[in-house]
Amino acid sequence: MKEIHDQSQLNDFLHAHRIEDVFHEPLRPYLSLYSFEPGEPICAQGEPAQYLYVLVKGKIKIYNTSPEGKTLVISFKTPLEVIGDIEYIQEIDTINTVVAVSPVYMIGIHQRWLRKYGSDYSPLLQFLLKIITQKFFIKSNFMSFNLMYPVEVRLASYLLSVSFDETDALFRGQISTSHLTDAANLIGTSYRHLNRVIRKFCAEGLIERNKTFILVKDKEGLSAMANQPIGK
């Protein structure tokens, strides 16, 4: 994590995402802009939740680890998204681990300043309410999506979600094969069946696979197969 001391850039992000009114003047001095490199953790499951983060650029992965060490990928998120909102409201430790997938920019503020200057500020509370209810709505749709559609549709949607980022020109059409376990977990299938579908996609010219990465060759073909980007 790197703190970026550039008030102009922070203000540009607030303006671009139309959240200037969410953080009124008493809160502004306590806002900070942070950058994260791909693979860098933003917060970790079980740690004390201290900050509220607003994702303003890049893509993140959210996952949970069981006591037995099994990992379940919950979702991939792009702006505008908030991390630490439920923890702030419920006053609990961090629920999930969050890591950067692409270069990420976050606006962060410590919870103590939110409680001091924002606990009765209506625009901030309305913003958090909208974000949290949207998360439950998306989760409900996602569960239905996994139950109603075959693995081919779910995998196509996954590949489109994780291998493209409209905010990063260098993040186009390629994912590491090390992420295939994540893919199987997220779309609710076995690793063996996932590989069968990948071989099918390769034979159809939709993707290309080697030892280290999968490359999307036919984005339009995958888009026609997928009903929606998964885990968003």
Rank of each mutant, 00 (worst) to 15 (best):
V82Y: 09
V82F: 06
H17Q: 15
P41E: 13
K116M: 00
Q7P: 10
P150D: 05
F145Y: 15
Q228L: 00
H24Q: 13
W113E: 08
P41Y: 15
T71M: 09
I230M: 07
K135F: 06
L186M: 15
T133H: 12
C202Y: 10
E208C: 05
P150K: 06
T97E: 07
I92V: 08
L206S: 02
F76G: 06
L27E: 11
Q50G: 14
I86Q: 06
E220A: 08
L27S: 13
F137C: 10
V162I: 03
Q9L: 15
V162P: 03
R199T: 06
L33S: 12
I42H: 14
K59S: 02
V73E: 11
L55S: 09
N185P: 03
P26S: 15
G39Y: 05
L129P: 04
L33K: 11
Y121W: 09
G84C: 04
E208W: 02
S223G: 09
T167L: 12
K211C: 00
H110Q: 07
I60P: 06
Q126F: 09
S75P: 09
L215V: 07
D168A: 02
F213E: 06
K70T: 08
K77H: 02
E47L: 13
L186F: 11
P79G: 10
N96S: 12
F136W: 13
T212G: 01
R192M: 13
L72E: 00
L14C: 13
E91K: 14
A226D: 03
I214N: 09
I89H: 01
F171R: 14
I60C: 04
R115H: 02
I89R: 04
R154L: 04
T212D: 02
N227F: 10
L206W: 00
K211V: 00
D218A: 06
L80Q: 11
M225L: 14
L128V: 11
T189K: 06
Y121R: 13
D12T: 14
V73C: 06
A44Y: 01
D85P: 01
P103W: 03
Y121F: 15
E81V: 01
T212E: 05
H179N: 03
F36E: 03
E87T: 02
K59I: 04
L72S: 03
G173T: 10
Q174H: 01
R192Q: 14
T78Q: 03
F127G: 01
T71A: 13
P41M: 10
S122D: 10
L215Y: 01
T167A: 05
I83Q: 00
K57W: 04
L215F: 05
P79T: 03
Y105H: 07
S32Q: 15
